[in-house]
Amino acid sequence: MVTHDPETLINAVVCAVIAIRLLTFRRDGGAHVQWAAWLAYCLILATGSVTIRIAMGTYEGTTDPAELFINAVLCVMVLRAKGNVVQLFKVRRGSDA
């Protein structure tokens, strides 16, 4: 790894966690949702490529704090949804709605 920038290293870890969690998602008998499968596939490619490019030293520049924040929020959301991309788009309704 060429970079010693802490934000970039944290970004690599966050993106790796996202990609690994999405890769290890199991439907357990749930219905297959085509758009969610494609979205998960694209997210795995995008976040995985960031991790690989940082590890290989081909990541251009340093990580912007806003980029790191967005990736961290996405990571928390993916972990809370247990890797289920459909859950990221479900809206919970309050009892007074």
Rank of each mutant, 00 (worst) to 15 (best):
M1L: 13
T3V: 15
H4A: 12
H4Y: 11
H4L: 06
D5A: 04
D5Q: 08
P6R: 00
P6H: 08
P6A: 15
E7I: 02
E7S: 09
E7C: 02
T8G: 02
T8N: 02
L9P: 11
I10P: 00
N11A: 15
A12I: 05
A12F: 01
V13N: 06
V13I: 14
V14F: 04
C15F: 03
C15V: 11
C15R: 04
A16N: 14
A16T: 11
V17M: 08
I18Y: 03
I18T: 01
A19P: 07
A19T: 04
I20Q: 12
I20L: 13
L22S: 05
L22N: 01
L23R: 15
L23E: 11
L23P: 06
T24A: 06
R26I: 11
R26D: 13
R27S: 03
D28W: 03
D28R: 13
D28K: 10
G29H: 10
G30D: 13
A31N: 12
A31G: 01
H32A: 14
V33I: 11
V33Q: 03
Q34K: 11
Q34V: 10
W35R: 08
W35Y: 06
A36S: 06
A37D: 14
W38F: 01
W38A: 10
L39S: 00
L39T: 12
A40T: 07
Y41G: 02
I44S: 07
I44M: 15
I44Y: 03
L45F: 13
L45V: 12
A46S: 14
A46I: 04
A46T: 12
A46F: 12
T47L: 04
G48I: 08
G48E: 12
S49H: 01
V50R: 09
I52H: 05
I52G: 04
I54P: 14
A55P: 13
M56C: 15
G57S: 10
G57C: 08
T58L: 07
T58G: 07
E60V: 14
T62L: 12
T63S: 08
A66N: 07
L68M: 05
L68K: 07
L68P: 05
F69H: 08
I70C: 11
N71T: 02
A72R: 08
A72K: 03
A72Y: 05
A72Q: 13
V73D: 14
C75H: 00
V76T: 11
M77K: 05
M77S: 05
V78F: 04
V78Q: 01
L79C: 13
L79F: 09
L79N: 12
R80P: 05
A81R: 10
K82M: 09
K82R: 15
G83I: 09
G83Q: 06
N84T: 06
N84F: 03
N84M: 01
V85L: 03
V86S: 13
Q87V: 00
Q87R: 15
R92K: 15
R92A: 10
R93G: 03
S95R: 13
D96R: 12
D96V: 06
